[in-house]
Design a protein around this nucleic acid. Sequence first.
DNA 1: GCTTGACCTCAAGTTAACTTGAGAGATTAG
DNA 2: CTAATCTCTCAAGTTAACTTGAGGTCAAGC
Lengths: 157, 157
Amino acid sequence: MTPASAALKPNQLPIGEVARRTGLSVSAIRFYEERGLVTAGRNKGGQRRFARSDIRRLSFIMIAQNMGFSLQRITLALSGLPTHRAPSKAEWAKMAEDFRGDLEDRIVTLTRLKDRLDTCIGCGCLSLDDCGLYNKQDIAGRSGSGPRYVIGTVSST
Amino acid sequence: MTPASAALKPNQLPIGEVARRTGLSVSAIRFYEERGLVTAGRNKGGQRRFARSDIRRLSFIMIAQNMGFSLQRITLALSGLPTHRAPSKAEWAKMAEDFRGDLEDRIVTLTRLKDRLDTCIGCGCLSLDDCGLYNKQDIAGRSGSGPRYVIGTVSST
DNA sequence: GCTTGACCTCAAGTTAACTTGAGAGATTAG
DNA sequence: CTAATCTCTCAAGTTAACTTGAGGTCAAGC
């Protein structure tokens, strides 16, 4: 029936199969290949053939993208990993190390944002004048631009 | 010299002033107003006049956007807050409550992703066959599509 | 009162991340 | 072999989130 029921060589997955297994659309996968996020071999007829490891690579792309990372950033993260075969421990470690910083920054900022939101509920600052999330008295206006209480390096309180 | 040195009524900030204080571009602020994320009054000449509280609102937009939330989601979060004046405690509580879930989900997923990345470094799974981040044996292919080990509800074990 | 630097509107352009469609070749069950 | 299903390329369209530009108005200092 489906191509999947046929004898699929493990590292010769056609694009439709990869689409089914990742949940991505065929066109998106082709787009990612064009952008260099994945690479695919070709069979005699010129059709793409993916390795099993590409499914994991694509899953990573989906997750990271869902978390708000751009394809550009994801491309950078993936750039150290080999295409079309599972990464070695060293390759993986390198990518994890490079990416961890961004991940941590984001976790910290999100946590801070959440805490500020929660604190403002309980702190009794009806006018919110004392709320740490806000730039009381427009401090940002005096010392540069952009919000810095949550984003920035200025410690809270 | 600059308009800022003139006597600015506290709730009559011109758009350029708001831009300087938030770090946003003037065109972005106008765009946000068009989309309903902020509202501005007008002076006699038809120029926008913002309240001080709009700076905080815009800062929130910047932070949330930076964290990968869409303007649509941010609009939703802000929809319960009053425009052109500081929110009351109840208004703030409502918004925080609604938004907290999304924030927490994202923190959990990011943390999981980071842990998986780190674990893979130390776990000794050179081939990564045992790595929890991956869908070993293409489990996703059998039980639905999309990566589910990190995104999904399947516990990591 | 005039000049200069904000500000205004509206239309069109831009980048990211894809999707859709046309027209044509490749694979495989039967 | 043939029909049904995939797959291919390439061009153009789409949505989000803005930016840029044209042409004109407003406001504050001298």
